[in-house]
Amino acid sequence: MKIMIIGHSGCGKSTLASYISKMKRIPLLHLDQVYFNTGWQPREREEALAIVKQQLENESWVIEGNYQNLYQKERLEQADQIIFLDFPRLSCLKRVIQRYNRYRGKTRPDMAVGCIEKLDVEFIWWILYKGRDKKKRQAFNRIERNYKDKLRIIRNQKELDMFYTIFDET
């Protein structure tokens, strides 16, 4: 089983990916851990690509994160299921604020070591606008159009809760 989880910042991609990985005993890769090194410094591109490529060679995997430049096309092609968390902007912002309060001064389990949780104007702008600009919407629309047979879109917490319930039964 190969599962790709994409979506907006703050939707719960990492939490869902960790849950699926644990329940199905499937190797998990958080792309934020691949992209960033300590202190939010980007990892060397070739090293990041090698990490993702190695994960793609596994028989089963869960890969969480968007990052078009980290073999997104290959992930889309190989995935048996693509889960797109498409929560409203303000829901994402609320969740990010809650996450910040929980992890303030710490590194989240799904982040690279030394990437202390932060919430600044730039990130808020990303959540509300830049992460949903025309180019990003077009990219998600292409995924929806080209992979509709294996795409599951979850638009709010109620739908996500239902997904967890159904997933528990499988």
Rank of each mutant, 00 (worst) to 15 (best):
S18M: 05
S18T: 11
Y19F: 15
Y19R: 02
Y19K: 07
I20S: 04
I20D: 07
S21Y: 05
K22I: 10
R25W: 07
L28S: 01
L29E: 05
L31E: 11
Q33A: 09
Q33F: 04
Q33C: 14
V34F: 06
N37F: 04
T38C: 13
T38F: 04
T38N: 10
Q41W: 00
Q41A: 04
Q41L: 15
P42E: 13
P42N: 12
R43H: 09
R43D: 08
E46L: 07
E46R: 07
E47M: 04
E47A: 08
A48K: 07
A48D: 05
A48C: 00
A48P: 00
L49F: 00
V52S: 02
K53Y: 08
K53S: 14
Q54C: 00
Q55C: 07
Q55D: 00
Q55S: 08
L56M: 13
E57M: 12
E59W: 03
E59D: 11
E59K: 14
S60K: 12
W61Q: 06
V62Q: 02
V62G: 01
V62P: 04
I63N: 03
I63S: 08
E64P: 01
G65K: 05
G65S: 13
G65A: 12
N66E: 01
Y67S: 06
Y67P: 01
Q68K: 06
N69H: 05
N69T: 09
L70C: 08
L70I: 10
Q72E: 15
Q72A: 13
K73G: 05
K73Y: 09
K73R: 14
K73I: 09
E74P: 02
Q78L: 15
Q78M: 14
D80P: 04
D80K: 11
Q81L: 15
I82A: 03
I82F: 02
I82C: 07
I83F: 04
I83V: 14
I83A: 04
F84I: 06
L85G: 01
L85E: 02
F87V: 10
F87P: 00
F87Y: 12
F87D: 04
P88D: 15
P88S: 14
R89Q: 13
R89L: 05
L90W: 13
L90R: 11
S91W: 12
S91P: 01
S91T: 13
S91F: 09
S91Q: 13
K94S: 10
V96L: 13
I97W: 09
I97C: 12
Q98N: 11
Q98Y: 03
R99T: 11
R99C: 11
Y100P: 07
Y100T: 10
N101D: 03
R102Y: 11
R102G: 00
R102C: 15
Y103C: 11
G105Y: 12
G105H: 13
T107R: 02
T107G: 09
T107K: 03
T107L: 04
T107A: 07
T107I: 09
R108I: 11
R108K: 12
R108P: 12
R108T: 09
D110T: 11
D110E: 15
M111F: 14
M111Q: 15
